[in-house]
């Protein structure tokens, strides 16, 4: 499931976030242990640890010592806010650049999006 170019721990952190957004791991639910993540994704446990540490630092996951790791209250909102910011960087800016290269105006683009969004 991993691709070249982005560090594996970043990709794993994003995959866990996506599962939280999707509701696979609801708020308050326990997430798999580091060893489970490592074996499931076929990655070094140290890499799994980096991914999880990053999510703990950002307040997405909470570590309860001796018990495990849990999805923090408010984690879904937190992730949604962060992803909204990334939406511009990852999708809107490249879309604008491609449109300009093709000689499409902003209005052309808006028309195109509206057309695609209408069933």
């Amino acid at each position: 499931m991993f691709e070249d170019g982005v560090p594996i721990f970043t990709q794993l952190a994003e995959a866990i976030e996506a599962d939280i957004l999707r509701g696979t791991y609801p708020e308050g639910a326990q997430v798999p242990s580091l060893n489970e993540l490592a074996v499931f994704h076929r990655i070094n446990p140290a890499t799994a640890n980096r991914a999880v540490a990053q999510l703990v630092d950002r307040g997405v996951l909470i570590k309860r010592r001796g018990i495990g790791m849990f999805v923090a209250d408010g984690a879904r909102q937190l992730i949604a806010d962060e992803r909204r910011k990334l939406l511009v960087e990852r999708y809107v800016n490249p879309l604008l650049a491609e449109a300009r290269a093709l000689g499409l105006s902003e209005q052309d683009l808006i028309t195109l999006i509206t057309k695609e969004a209408t069933p």
Partner: peptide, 9 residues
């Protein structure tokens, strides 16, 4: 690879 990771963990 699977054995190695599981046992190493």
């Amino acid at each position: 690879y699977d054995l190695l990771l599981a046992d190493y963990a």
